[in-house]
Write a protein that binds this DNA or RNA. Structure first.
Lengths: 187, 187
DNA sequence: CGCCTCGTTGATTGTACTCAATGGGAGTGG
DNA sequence: CCACTCCCATTGAGTACAATCAACGAGGCG
């Protein structure tokens, strides 16, 4: 079930729309952001992927989004058609897709919130679940712009809200991109 | 591949969270809305389903959303585990899930738009694709509140935008819930 | 008729967007 | 080492747009 694998540097593009060759890219380690690009240059982040997640499920058709490494990452390429031949493999793939669907729906729910704070609270929790966290410690290897593109806000609003949270000790920057979630967020 | 089937009246609940029995509900005819309910009573519409769509993919685990008929609908129950045993069946299911994922991502994109008009324009197109349309004629068997819950707006904003569109002949109400999309929307 | 749900329209307010300027850190080259 | 640049982040001021609160209208049904 393991196939070829490749390593990607931070900020490197793993694939772009239109590329698909029957192999399914599965993230072994690192973190990846999936997004689409509009004509006007705006980006919409579709998903975050952590170790174990598939980056797309297109066996043959054209993928319609970009994948970019948020940190040094390793990607394995699983032969898709072979996976489907096997009953256990098919069940595994269905389970993976169901998990993705559930994540997308949490993302949908996030975007339905009308206030910036509600959205960002949901974002931090979702990112923690997608990318992994150590208790109340979370890594957010995203730029403010990427967080904005994930939450449907502007980078300024994201910046202001995080600043407010730091003042209120809801979220504390430990160092770099690692934060400590306060009681209000840890739930 | 066909199993039992059941008919549901308009506004009837097809299933609620927590119910799942290994059979996959597939919509034969009609239209269905999938949504979640928050503690505060707010609803978030997750998806619209038309003929041929599965209403969930949970073989055993608990479903986490509601399904409600938007019009008289018929639902077939496909034995899920049996479907997975078969190679063609598994491929079919994977394809269905991939389509759902694509729809959810369009929905995500819709919710990332900041203006009410952009969101509702994307909504009308998405609903047309999900529920079917006859050229520029589209049926929107949703209440204003349901459209609001789909787009993350309020029912007042939806009402105002539709009124504006009727004045500008962007969207014309033919009768009841059937509308005619103008050039601006037909794209 | 009275009741209820759904939809429309109006007036006001608040929040996040927009435009704009400044600050800070990483990397490069003299 | 310092000057320079570039990118990302922060902060400020003003504004626009949708949310909110509220009243009213239209249709369906017992």
């Amino acid at each position: 079930m393991t196939g070829d694998s490749r390593r990607f540097a931070k900020r490197e593009t793993i694939f772009a729309p239109g590329e698909a060759d029957g192999d399914l890219p599965k993230l072994i380690s690192g973190a990846v952001i999936l997004y689409t690009l509009f004509e006007d240059g705006r980006r919409q982040v579709l998903d975050l992927a952590g170790p174990g997640d598939f980056l797309h499920f297109d066996l043959e058709g054209a993928v319609d989004h970009y994948a970019e490494a948020l940190m040094p990452s390793e990607v394995a390429y699983i032969p898709g058609p072979a996976l489907l031949q096997d009953t256990d493999g098919a069940a595994f793939m269905v389970e993976q897709m169901r998990d993705r669907l559930a994540i997308e729906r949490r993302h949908l729910t996030l975007l339905s919130y009308k206030s910036a704070m509600d959205r960002l609270e949901a974002f931090v929790k979702l990112a923690a679940d997608c990318l992994g966290h150590d208790g109340a410690r979370v890594d957010l290897p995203l730029t403010r712009q990427q967080i904005a593109d994930f939450t449907g806000l502007t980078l300024e609003t994201v910046s202001r809200t995080f600043a407010q949270w730091e003042r209120d000790a809801v979220l504390t920057k430990i160092e770099g991109q690692t934060y400590l979630m306060g009681a209000a967020l840890a739930a």
